[in-house]
Design a protein around this nucleic acid. Structure first.
Lengths: 142, 142
DNA sequence: AAATACTTTAAAACTATTCTAAACTATTGA
DNA sequence: TCAATAGTTTAGAATAGTTTTAAAGTATTT
């Protein structure tokens, strides 16, 4: 019925032991077909609601970092007090709704690919991140 | 000799009182022809080195925020524990050297302008930020 | 089943930033 | 010019997100 075997395999294959906590987090993150964005705070709330047992905050951080390192999650750059993560690991860009502090995926067909003409000597491009900040029209900005 | 009168005028015109502290920070930030990037920590270090008297950390924060609000500085999004600021307030993008945690300006001629084809209903684009992360070739990323 | 290595945990520590409220300073206007 | 005022600076406390610690627990290996 569940994807537990799948996640167990996935974790083992990447050298992570399939613990109860990691499997639960996998379920929360990867069992929906839709990808989504979350902060650690969001995630702990979801876990609290969906779970009978608690997962320590440190474990949530550990796991998210491990998953990011393995490429199962992406971290998104927003100048902000907190980090955002994305379960959509394909190459794509984001809108950031400043009114709601909410990320919105920007499909490949919705933005032209960015063409960088300059090369930094001895360096390789690791990623190109575009963030389109939006806010409602009637914003006072002073 | 100095630009103090200039800064005094600039501050007064934007409704900020030209205090000793603000004028000193203006000198540090705006007296060189070259623009540059800095963190609050960088700035306090520069101030400590160049100044006879101390400026309180809270004042540095206050001033930088005031200057940003007035458009004299830009804040740059890097997923990070700290904020980066830029004295170059023209529209431009950045490389981020992950080895040195250092920003590098990307000139308009070095990147094609980003074309966004999608519109978020009721929202206006406030900014389009591109961050090109670079690192040395021989990086182990696991 | 014992040994090993990895993982979880609560709590402490840490870092960047913001807040507080009292002292201070620039500006206003009589 | 001088007092009233409004804005500013300050040290230190507070906060928020995140990381570290070290001990207890669990999965894996032998």
């Amino acid at each position: 019925m569940t994807n537990i075997n799948l996640y167990t395999k996935k974790l083992r294959e990447s050298g992570l032991r399939p613990t109860k906590q990691r499997l639960k987090i996998c379920e929360v993150l990867f069992s929906s077909e839709k990808t989504f964005h979350f902060t650690i705070n969001d995630l702990t709330k979801i876990i609290e609601e969906k779970l009978s047992e608690k997962i320590s905050l440190a474990t949530v951080y550990n796991t998210i970092h491990a998953f990011k390192k393995k490429g199962y999650l992406k971290e998104i750059s927003i100048n902000s007090d907190k980090s955002y993560f994305d379960t959509n690991i394909t190459d794509h860009q984001h809108f950031f709704d400043e009114d709601k502090s909410q990320l919105i995926d920007c499909g490949d067909d919705e933005i032209d690919s960015v063409n960088v003409k300059r090369n930094i000597t001895g360096k390789k491009i690791k990623s190109i991140e575009v963030l389109i900040r939006v806010a409602s029209d009637n914003q006072n900005q002073n």
